[in-house]
């Protein structure tokens, strides 16, 4: 890992920490109130706030995890070179695509 990836991974972690706490709070709130899926979707659909919140969460998580996977792959398999960077990008884009799909499913009608 070089300094650029280090800064990106730490910054994405710091950015994600409060979002994660809010996310957990929302889960506890929805569970304790006994919300159904329809109740939740009624609140999230068309919501710019929740769309933006979870899009930011997905971007940070995809960045953080992709850099982590790159480190694990290089240490556990001695993987080096450009293909290691390609693995990181592929992992990040896959996670971002999955996340955006999930966000779209609960925000877009």
């Amino acid at each position: 890992m070089n300094v650029r990836l280090y800064v990106l991974q730490r910054a994405s972690a710091a950015f994600m920490a409060p979002l994660l706490l809010i996310h957990l709070g929302v889960i506890f709130y929805a569970s304790s109130r006994g919300f159904s899926a329809a109740d939740i979707l009624a609140r999230t659909r068309g919501s710019l706030f929740w769309g933006g919140f979870y899009a930011a969460f997905v971007a940070a998580a995809a960045t953080h995890a992709a850099i982590g996977v790159r480190v694990i792959a290089s240490e556990w398999t001695r993987w080096r070179g450009r293909s290691l960077g390609a693995l990181m990008w592929a992992c990040g884009l896959l996670l971002a695509a999955l996340g955006v799909t999930a966000v779209a499913a609960v925000v877009l009608t």
């Binding site: 890992m1 070089n2 300094v3 990836l5 280090y6 480190v71």
Partner: peptide
């Protein structure tokens, strides 16, 4: 020390 294999490893 900031390159790959440096302090951030």
């Amino acid at each position: 020390v900031a390159a790959a294999g440096g302090c951030h490893a």
